[in-house]
Amino acid sequence: MSKALIIDDEPQMRRLLRMVLESRGYEVCEADEGQRGLQEAAFHRPDVILLDLGLPGIGGLEVLKRLREWSDAPVLILSVRDQEAVKVQALEGGADDYVTKPFGSAELLARLEVIQRRRGTRHTPEITAGPLRLDLLHHEARIADEALKLTPTEFELLKALAAHAGRIVTQNQIIRQVWPGQVSDPGEGLRVHINHLRKKLGDRGLRILNEPGIGYRLEG
């Protein structure tokens, strides 16, 4: 059974999230502000944390920063619209994904599921995402046993997206991984390669979705 920690200042929101999560078999603990949230996280060692960005006192971003000093528990950000810059900051500060209020419970549960998949160390030189298999040893990509002809850059790009399949990856995160050290207007090059990659992936059940102002998500 997974343990979830909800850090949100709205009591009704916490109650509701608790009901939704408990109905899916989560064990739930909650905190109404950041400092307590950090204490609860240290005490209960949750498997996943739901963090509201608009907390009173120390804000969501600061909570995330302090949490990441000692914990790598997956974090799902609860945000409102028009906070794109803050969302990007949170994602690059170690959050795993976000949902925008108002959200449906199906969306919330799906995101929670995805970010709890095993992260960190890999034991096989292979990444799979839906029908996609990336062989990191031989730099080969296959969709349903059909080989894709990718340039090295496209392969790196697909690797960056597939390693986080189903999760949002910010533009900067992709660029840092695919073009380390590049600085001059890399958004342009990224768009070009995403475009090529989309054409090569075609209509085979894998989609690279763009979230304006934030980044990309590979959905399989």
Binding site: E10, Q12, M13, L16, L17, M19, V20, S23, G54, V80, D82, K101, P102, F103, G104, S105, A106, L108
Partner: peptide, 21 residues
Amino acid sequence: LDSVSHELKTPITIIRTALDG
């Protein structure tokens, strides 16, 4: 604006999420 936005959207979010149940 942010605060009004937050205050107005929170109850709507709660209703929307509760409706799923």
